[in-house]
């Protein structure tokens, strides 16, 4: 029988009606939600004018209260660094316990549950909880960002451990090495560069978040920023924004350098 004899073929690509209906529903909902919220072109063009005025009032940036600014920034930086360091120290064992290729299921499930719990709320909501619990100030912000860090990095740590080459681990195990040996010589070398990358990313993220927890009373520059907004001190706001951007950029350079060292 030749190829031509096989008769008519089925279509090469099957239509996925379920997916098509899904996309259609999503599009309909977006239109519906937009209509519900009462957007209009009028409002948008008015808003642009307001925005223009707002930006105009920002210039020139006002650095006269630089002491207030710097004390806020320094506190934000401390919140970010402390919460990152403590968060990582806690995330290392939690991530290991959650790695399904090295741990039995009865260990990974509780660990994964704990991580999911830490991830479920936005840092601001956790910060509100901690402000209620331990009072206003940097401690509440630090605790909130520790929780956020654990939720984020433990999961990434666990995934990095799950992606290691088990051949290398097998070879170390075959020498008669114990579990701790295997972690030190078989697992750690494989995951270290990725861990450094995640830690750097988390520091970056905590720097940004640390400028925000202040809005709900968690310490740092956030409170000053929020007050300045409310008092229409837009030139001071711009000064703070410039310093925050500079801080993030410096952190980017430093973490990039750290990544290179541990390549």
């Amino acid at each position: 029988m030749t190829i031509a004899d096989k008769g008519p073929r089925t279509r090469p690509f099957e239509a996925n009606w379920l997916a098509r209906i899904g996309w259609l529903l999503l599009a309909l909902y977006v239109v519906y939600a937009g209509a519900q919220l009462g957007f209009s072109w009028q409002r948008f063009s008015d808003g642009l004018g307001q925005g223009g005025k707002f930006i105009a009032r920002m210039f020139p940036p006002n650095f006269t209260r630089w002491e207030l600014l710097m004390s806020g920034i320094v506190e934000s930086l401390q919140i970010a660094v402390l919460s990152t360091v403590v968060g990582i120290v806690i995330s290392l064992p939690v991530g290991l316990l959650a790695a399904r290729n090295l741990m039995p299921a009865w260990v990974t499930w509780p660990a994964r549950g704990f991580i999911a719990l830490c991830r479920s709320f936005h840092p601001i909501i956790v910060a509100i909880l901690f402000v209620k619990a331990v009072g206003f100030g940097a401690l509440a912000g630090i605790l909130a960002l520790i929780i956020a860090s654990i939720g984020f990095i433990s999961k990434l740590f666990a995934e990095a451990i799950e992606e290691i080459s088990l051949k290398q681990v097998e070879a170390v195990r075959a020498t008669g090495a114990g579990f701790t040996h295997i972690l030190i010589m078989g697992v750690q070398p494989q995951v270290l560069p990725r861990f450094i990358g995640f830690a750097a990313y988390q520091l970056d993220s905590n720097l940004r978040n640390s400028t925000m927890v202040g809005i709900v009373g968690g310490g740092g520059i956030g409170a000053t920023l929020f007050t300045a907004y409310q008092r229409f001190d837009y030139d001071f706001v711009l000064a703070m924004l410039i310093v925050i951007v500079a801080m993030i950029m410096v952190a980017e350079i430093v973490t990039g350098w750290a990544r290179k060292v541990f390549q």
């Binding site: 070879a171 008669g176 010589m185």
Partner: peptide
């Protein structure tokens, strides 16, 4: 483990710890 350390093993794909 005491028995394993008396037994050396060589692998098809070498199984060295690559980053060490």
């Amino acid at each position: 483990r005491a028995a394993r350390r008396r037994i050396g093993m060589v692998f098809q794909e070498y199984n060295l710890v690559e980053r060490l």
